[in-house]
């Protein structure tokens, strides 16, 4: 059991992805440790989403191997990817209908609990995805990703399009669930606040490779130009200079 925990839950080895003549990833290596929250950052078009899809198995790499040791995986797609012909609660309960021997009533009951957990009420559950706001779609999609109690979650831009308050609440929800349930989380994000607040490690995707993977503080000190401008540009600086939420109290005590 202990040995198992030390082994990375997901390892990508020498991954190469190519679309036509465009090389997206070249001999890319990435290990994700069990129980951590890993933030994946990179410029627009650097291939973050493609890497995520490769890890999940939705995209077959040209070369390289993927070892995924998670028993159950949950995915939150960038735009939610809720099935538009079903109500929200049916969307959440669908994996239970299809893959478990739970009765329909039981499945719907568990789904409504999951919806309540992510902050959606029953009225929202009875609606169709097209009738929900962007934030509600994200929450419903998270509920669907969580319904079968995965041990690993992949989140593609979980807080994109949310207001800062909802985004912070969403971050906090992911953090609490991940720590309570021992979930491993890989998230693609451009939200520096998310990186700062909940990520244990940051992986930087640039020049077709993971050029740095470490804690935020250490990655931010990396000499690479892109990393410097990302974390020390006008938007990045405000985040780097302030302590993360979780360490807030301990730091004030020290002062």
């Amino acid at each position: 059991m202990v040995m198992n925990d030390l082994q990375p839950i997901l390892s990508l080895e020498d991954i190469t992805n190519r679309f036509g003549a465009t090389v997206i990833h070249e001999n890319l290596n990435l290990d994700v440790n069990t129980g951590e929250i890993l933030g994946l950052v990179g410029g627009s078009g650097a291939g973050k989403s493609v890497l995520l899809r490769t890890a999940i198995g939705l995209h077959k790499p040209v070369a390289g191997s993927i070892h995924l040791r998670a028993k159950q995986v949950g995915v939150l797609f960038q735009h939610g990817a809720l099935f538009s012909s079903m109500t929200v609660i049916e969307n959440v309960a669908l994996p239970l209908f299809e893959h478990t021997s739970l009765s329909r009533a039981q499945a719907l009951h568990l789904a409504s609990l999951k919806l309540a957990l992510v902050g959606l009420d029953q009225a929202a559950g009875a609606r169709y995805p097209a009738e929900l706001s962007g934030g509600m779609i994200k929450r419903a999609a998270l509920a669907r990703a969580l319904i079968r109690e995965p041990d690993m979650l992949f989140l593609d831009e979980p807080t994109a399009g949310l207001d800062p308050i909802s985004a912070a609440a969403f971050d906090q929800l992911i953090l609490t669930l991940s720590k309570a349930l021992g979930l491993t989380v890989v998230l693609v994000t451009h939200d520096l606040d998310t990186l700062h607040a909940i990520c244990d490690r940051i992986a930087v995707l640039s020049d077709k490779q993971i050029i740095a993977i470490d804690t935020l503080a250490k990655v931010a000190e990396h000499k690479n130009d892109w990393i410097q401008s990302y974390f020390h540009g006008p938007r990045g600086r405000a985040i780097i200079d302030k302590p993360p939420y979780s360490q807030h109290s301990s730091l004030t005590v020290e002062n």
């Binding site: 999951k114 309540a116 009420d121 029953q122 309570a180």
Partner: peptide, 23 residues
Amino acid sequence: PHHRDIFQQLLRAYQNQQTSSSE
């Protein structure tokens, strides 16, 4: 403590559920 977190999340979910009305 992890299990306590799970129970607390769940209890919060029950509170959310109670406040919403059914049609």
